[in-house]
Amino acid sequence: MRATISESRWVQCLLIGIALLFLAGFLLLPLAAVFTEALRSGWVAYRAAILEPDALSAIRLTLLVAACAVPLNMLFGLAAAWAVSKFEFRGKTLLITLIDLPFSVSPVVAGLVYVLLFGRNGWAGGWLIDHDVHVLFALPGIVIATVFVTFPFVARELIPLMQEQGTDYEQAALSLGASGWQTFWRVTLPSIKWALLYGVLLCNARAMGEFGAVSVVSGHIRGQTDTMPLHIQILYDEYRFSGAFAVASLLALLGLVTLAVKSYLEWRHGDELAATRRH
């Protein structure tokens, strides 16, 4: 009977062949191209492209932006997940939908809304600029745009998991006399730590690689407001291809590390992630 619900051997091989060829050509080849192009002019040129002052300042800015944006969204994710999963209230579904909203907004549009808000003629921009606070074409604008595009990452990992977990353990801790904060630190946090790490990881990868939104608000001041992806674009537009691919290879490495840790978490701690993440 078993044989009747499976495909013949050669159909299987054919389907596997098509799928793997597609994945190799469509996903792995671009990755290989990044590293090949980066090393085309040799290691010395590669090192030089990464160690030039503008590239270093771009790397520094990217790290700084991620260091600001990721903790902000982590804090938000924890608060939102606590509010949504531990309490019943009206409009909960609407709230969850709104939290996911930034995912369906084009990054360029995300940048645009802050230009409208913080530009010289914007609602807040005029007043802020008069008080010498510059948001646009400066670090704060880049951070806020990054926060927007990475907004749901942590929350959407935590909400389904904490909804599954319910409030039983927290109730037990509270009835034994623990304070609210003690309950959070000793009971809730240990049970969501892998999901939190998972969300932070994805949030960080997107934060460091964000291009569209940051491109709109950064103003492209070389050596000052250029993040790594923007620096790649500048080099590329100046036909300095091996330099562009050298910086790109660093971001590709970040992506590979992210994928590796993510797969490890799914494999090793799958039962402590939300149900949708268990493979």
Partner: peptide
């Protein structure tokens, strides 16, 4: 299976030039 998520993990500018 892990490589499926590559387009999520690879920054868009990197994917673009690649």
């Amino acid at each position: 299976d892990a490589a499926i998520d590559l387009p999520f993990a690879l920054p868009t500018a990197v994917a673009g030039i690649a």
